[in-house]
Design a protein around this nucleic acid. Structure first.
Lengths: 136, 136
DNA sequence: TAAATGGCTGACGTTTACGTAAACTGTAAC
DNA sequence: GTTACAGTTTACGTAAACGTCAGCCATTTA
């Protein structure tokens, strides 16, 4: 064991995070404002992000890419935040998580449908282009 | 062959569509305003929707559920509208469709990640609740 | 044919998710 | 130590995607 900085101690500034995730600093601060993340601060009041904070931001962005609103994502995360409360809270969270899992299953199905829609259009276009080539 | 109304002739009013797809009539008119659908009209200027129109609306809603903006969806659909143009147009559309197919593949992957995030939280919660039960 | 119901077109209002700018403070490099 | 850059808060602005009237026409039903 050495006292060299381990991967665990790695931290990031807000702009490093912004670059890494390709979002604006404004967006990051906005998510904090909405209670989606809570980074620590330096003595000089500047935000510092851990890899854990980073992971959470990635989760948020993933959720967004699937059309979940920030409020919905906030609820999903609230699930994790309930961590150390009473049994009821945890059970409620589990239920919520299960609902989300069902939703994700449905989304998977729909994703297939969307793919097929596009593939069908693709086929039509190819057919049409073949026809045009034959005509000329 | 009879001259009975075939499934092909089936039409719907705007509120029938709204009920069937669980969206507001305002939303439907809004999509029309944005050029996403173009229903025929009755003599009295009321909108009439065919099953084809219905299918398109379903496609729009599917796209939305995956976080595509209406403008993006509009482009996807433009793909279909290019149907009877020149070769270049069609080729451009094909390219666009392929891009979307790639995006969909990525989304599928991310959907898996999202699912795993939730499952991981689920595991933690279950572990915690088991612990609480043992303590009591 | 009158009344209820549904649809049509504006037009303004609202919510979500940030963008942008101002005015100030902290930090790094010279 | 000062200049330049990065970060902070506060506040107003904005685009997308509808919601919600209002005032008018169409259609169905009693």
């Amino acid at each position: 064991m050495t006292d060299t900085k381990s991967k665990h101690d790695q931290t990031y500034t807000i702009s490093q995070i912004a670059d890494a995730l390709d979002i604006s600093t404004r967006t990051i601060r906005f998510y904090e404002e909405k209670g989606l993340i809570l980074p620590k601060r330096t003595a000089g009041n500047q935000r510092i992000y851990t890899p854990r904070n980073m992971a959470r931001l990635k989760l948020i962005l993933r959720g967004k890419r699937f059309g979940f609103s920030l409020e919905e994502i906030s609820e999903m995360i609230g699930m994790a935040a309930a961590n150390l409360n009473e049994v009821e809270q945890i059970e409620k969270s589990l239920k919520f998580g299960d609902t989300k899992l069902k939703e994700i299953k449905e989304r998977k199905k729909e994703l297939e449908l969307l793919e097929q829609d596009i593939l069908a259009t693709r086929q039509k276009l190819i057919k049409r282009i073949t026809q045009l080539n034959r005509e000329q």
